[in-house]
Computed example of a mutant assay.
Amino acid sequence: MPPPRRVAVAASAGRDSTALLHCTLRAAQPLGIEVLALHVHHGLMEQADDWLQQVRMQARRWGAVFDHRRLQGGPAAGDSLEAWARQGRYGALAEMAAEADCPLVLLAHHRRDQAETWLLQALRGAGPAGLSAMPLQAHRAGIVWARPWLTLPREAIEAYVRRHRLRHVDDPSNADRDLARGRLRREVWPALRAAFPQAETALAAAAARAQQSAQLAEEVAALDHPAAVVEGLLAIAPWRELPPARRRNLLRAWLIDATGVLPPETLLVRLEQELPGPGARRWPAPGGELRLQRGHLSFTAGPVWRRGAPG
Rank of each mutant, 00 (worst) to 15 (best):
V169Q: 11
A195L: 14
H68W: 13
F66N: 01
R270T: 12
L297N: 11
P284L: 11
Q87W: 07
A133T: 13
G78S: 04
L120K: 09
C23A: 15
T259G: 00
G130N: 09
S12I: 01
E158T: 08
R111Y: 04
P153H: 07
G288I: 04
W305A: 00
A13G: 08
G308Q: 08
S12Q: 03
P75I: 04
V55G: 02
V144D: 09
D257P: 02
E155M: 13
N174V: 10
P75Y: 01
G14R: 15
A235I: 02
E218K: 14
E274P: 14
P197N: 06
R181F: 11
A207F: 03
P263M: 03
P238M: 09
P4D: 07
W189N: 09
R162C: 11
A309S: 07
G182E: 01
A122T: 08
V304K: 01
A141H: 12
T266I: 07
P4E: 08
P128Q: 03
A138I: 00
A108H: 00
A202N: 08
A48Q: 02
A37P: 02
A100D: 06
L104H: 04
L25V: 01
L292F: 05
H164M: 03
L233M: 09
L290W: 10
Q54A: 12
L233N: 10
A10M: 03
A133W: 11
L93V: 01
E82S: 08
E219R: 15
L123S: 13
L268A: 02
V169H: 14
R86W: 08
V169I: 12
A8E: 06
E219S: 13
L81Y: 00
A129N: 11
H39T: 06
V105H: 03
H168E: 10
A175Q: 14
V230H: 11
I143N: 14
Q53M: 04
G142P: 06
Q137L: 15
V55R: 00
H168D: 07
P75L: 00
R307V: 09
P153R: 05
M134K: 05
L152A: 14
Y90P: 07
A8T: 13
E289M: 10
A27D: 08
R15D: 10
T300L: 15
E155Q: 15
P243C: 00
E158K: 14
R307S: 09
R186Q: 08
V161C: 11
R270M: 12
F196H: 11
R307T: 09
F66Y: 06
R185P: 11
R26Y: 06
L25W: 02
R15P: 07
V9H: 07
R252I: 04
R147T: 09
P148I: 01
G88R: 00
P197S: 06
A208G: 09
L223G: 10
G43S: 02
D49L: 14
L275H: 07
